[in-house]
Design a protein around this nucleic acid. Sequence first.
DNA 1: CAGAATCCAGCACGATACTG
DNA 2: CAGTATCGTGCTGGATTCTG
Lengths: 125, 125
Amino acid sequence: MKKIEINSERFDNMVENIKKYGGCPVSATLKIIGGKWKPLILYFISVDVNRFGQLQRMMPDCSKRMMTTQLRELEKDGLINRKVFAEVPPKVIYTLTITGENLRPLFGELRKWGIENILEPKKKS
Amino acid sequence: MKKIEINSERFDNMVENIKKYGGCPVSATLKIIGGKWKPLILYFISVDVNRFGQLQRMMPDCSKRMMTTQLRELEKDGLINRKVFAEVPPKVIYTLTITGENLRPLFGELRKWGIENILEPKKKS
DNA sequence: CAGAATCCAGCACGATACTG
DNA sequence: CAGTATCGTGCTGGATTCTG
């Protein structure tokens, strides 16, 4: 019987990610984008509302603390970039990564289903 | 100046749902399908694993309590039907509603993004 | 301006035992 | 078979204060 040869860091990466997210790509995705303010944050960044203060003004119900933690998680998960300018007063710009940009069709489907099935459910007539 | 006339239960319904889910259809959708076991449950029901015990065997890490609460929430949100047969021993069958079936393309996108961006992220080479 | 630190409440979720 | 009932805990997220 032949041994199976597996050889790639990519495989290690997969194993790591599968363990981390329970093996289901759907659950994994939901976990990453499912934070309370993440969809809104991603949306605003995608339309160039890209500074901390601006984001706060768009989402007054999101505290600074929450804004910070959600931004850090999005950064850690590779959905956004954080660029710090060494100025006084400090200036930070957030942008979507490629991975973040890749979310667009997914968000389109999320939005579509939400509108058609929750916000404006058709009467069964 | 003319008063705007708004008249429809549909509008009331929308207002209700918008308040309930914060007005963002994306967040609303994520809230509904984002339960810890809901994607798996919906998936298994969609492939006709439609009884409580069967679902439990497919997801041994999901306790009875969690299975019950998640199923009840899915039912309340109109994604699944629960049909009870008056027999001994009791028999219950779960099926997707139309609204639940409508999730298919969305789940397709969730799965696709998860695989391409988390489980098997491309090296930048 | 863009956070960090600390404290705290609520609830999601888990473990276990019991039931029509 | 398909659940309840009860108890317990850890994490998510809120309020407030402080800082380079």
